[in-house]
Design a binder for these strands. Sequence first.
DNA 1: AGCTAACACAAACGAAGGTTTGTACTCACG
DNA 2: CGTGAGTACAAACCTTCGTTTGTGTTAGCT
Lengths: 111, 111
Amino acid sequence: MTTEAEADLDLALRALADGNRRAILQVIRSAPQPVGTIAEQVGLSQQTASHHLGVLRKAGLAVGTREGTRHLFAVDTDGLAAVRSYLDDFWPAKLAALKTVIEARQEGPRG
Amino acid sequence: MTTEAEADLDLALRALADGNRRAILQVIRSAPQPVGTIAEQVGLSQQTASHHLGVLRKAGLAVGTREGTRHLFAVDTDGLAAVRSYLDDFWPAKLAALKTVIEARQEGPRG
DNA sequence: AGCTAACACAAACGAAGGTTTGTACTCACG
DNA sequence: CGTGAGTACAAACCTTCGTTTGTGTTAGCT
């Protein structure tokens, strides 16, 4: 369904809208890290970091792995791919839109 | 400063986080349209649409052109490019190449 | 089994953002 | 200049979201 992709895109975009979550992604960008380390790196409490990790997880932007008592989180490219392909859809259209702007100005106020 | 690009990215990401604004981008994706038409297309009031258009404009996602009493809005790729390059930074080189392959397969014949 | 560490879940609080309502401004027209 | 169409700005209201606080759950250790 197209609606499913829409919902996934919406989750990913809303997750990326927060600076703390982007900071978390930066922290786990190179290597997966436990929640405690992530919280310390971004200057958040354990609970808040865990919350944001959950948001990122549901958005398909992060994946978690059980490592004993720790929970290692890493970047998931699934959600990022959804956003990327969404953005890419605007590139070819932009050229056409730009052309239409010029045409619209040439047409004048009345159609 | 890197903070400047960060601020631009933040604006674009927060602007894209709203479904109505994404709907507006879809409306003006193919051709620039006046505020009244956009509002009608997405099912919003003129004031609300104007507000979102302002958000998209400040985020570098939309550009407006004065057309007499009308104000034509079109998609601006500046903000989208900022988001795109940000996302690309998360992909390890190997995965980025893989992603490009997938995109190429989607455009080409059946694979 | 008891204890400790690491993490997740849930409710409450506060702030940020979207919608509505009202109004002022600009441009086209006579 | 006065009128009407189209749009932007501002304040009030309400919803959403991030943070805090408190607590439950799982795993490792003695």
